Computed example of a mutant assay.
Amino acid sequence: MPTDAAATRPSPQDQGVRRFGRVNWLGTATLVEREVRRFMAVWTQTLLAPIVTAGLFLMIFTIAVGERRGEVMGVSFLHFLAPGLLMMTVIQNSFANVSSSISSAKVQGNIVDTLMPPLSAGELLTGYLAGGIARGVIVSVAIALAIFPTIGLGVANPLMALVWVVLGGAFLGALGIMAGIFANKFDQVAAITNFIITPLSFLSGTFYSLDTMPPVLAAISHANPVFYLIDGLRSSVLGVSDSSPWLGFVIVLTATALVCAGAWWMFRTGYRLKP
């Protein structure tokens, strides 16, 4: 017969509840740490390269356009361009970080190492999103510190700028989760990047104001959530924008919630993750 001590010893399930509550904090933090370590291990590719690319964009546009472009929305073209390039770099890196992590694990057959631990769909979503957001934030801070002082550009509202960067990382990070889960081959991720993510980022007011576009194209751009991300960051950095930053905030927040819900559903059902 079991002793009194054995009878009162908590079960492993009870120990887990007592240790973590309703959230597996340790498991989620471990997943976040793994994702951060993954891109920090190749920092020249994931962090240094985006800074160089953004600097080259600015240099090329300065040489090709220069003073001939004049002012855009009351600021110099170079200053107008910088926040858009920063956000474009953030969203591309956040998407790439998450989509490559999941798709690589699927192709290599080790996605089971992530699915087997006691992590819920919400905890998996949080872990991967945090990794994508972290890469986006680090890249944005590095670009702001390396390039903005060089071109004599300050930040009007640093706190709101950080909010927009986090929103951009979350939105594209969730899209990256969905792309990584959907893709069964690397070229499928590349196709999504080339035909969806790149057009969304380039056709979003990064290089121009919507006032200069035909009405039809301007209306299409207003349906692009990435436009509001770039416009919101531009408002925080320069104090000027094409649309209401608060309207953009609501639209981006709604779009991010919808995409996160889709990514959560994929984890919850095991869509394209479990045989």
Rank of each mutant, 00 (worst) to 15 (best):
S99I: 04
H79A: 08
T150Q: 11
A96E: 05
L81K: 07
A142S: 07
M160S: 10
S120Y: 09
S120A: 06
A105S: 14
A96G: 09
G131S: 03
V165C: 00
A190M: 15
F171E: 00
G122Q: 05
A161W: 14
V98S: 03
D187L: 11
P149I: 13
L81P: 11
G131M: 05
I91Q: 07
S103I: 15
H79K: 10
A105L: 12
V98A: 04
F148M: 04
N157D: 13
S100I: 04
I91E: 10
D187S: 10
L85E: 08
L175G: 07
A96I: 04
P117G: 02
F148G: 01
E123C: 13
L78K: 08
L85A: 03
G136C: 04
P149Q: 07
V107S: 08
A96S: 10
F202A: 01
N93S: 13
P158V: 08
G122V: 01
W164Q: 00
L124N: 12
W164D: 00
E123Q: 14
I138Y: 12
A144F: 09
P199F: 15
M87L: 05
L162A: 09
A170S: 04
P199S: 09
G127L: 12
S201D: 02
V137T: 04
T198Q: 11
L167M: 06
A190V: 08
N93R: 06
T89D: 14
S140L: 00
P117V: 00
A183K: 12
N157R: 14
N110P: 11
L115E: 04
N97R: 07
T193A: 08
A161R: 13
A105H: 12
L159F: 08
D113K: 04
L124T: 10
I181G: 00
A82V: 04
M87F: 10
I91N: 09
G173D: 02
S104E: 15
A183G: 14
V165F: 01
V163K: 03
L145N: 01
S101P: 06
A134L: 05
V112A: 12
H79L: 03
G173L: 06
F95A: 02
M116S: 11
N97V: 15
S201L: 10
G131L: 08
M88H: 06
S104F: 13
F202Y: 09
V98C: 06
I143C: 01
A161Y: 13
M88P: 02
I177D: 01
L145V: 08
A183H: 14
V163Y: 06
V163N: 00
G180M: 07
P83H: 03
S103M: 14
F186E: 14
G180W: 07
P158D: 09
S103Q: 15
F95W: 13
V189S: 15
I197Q: 02
S101E: 15
S103L: 15
V139I: 10
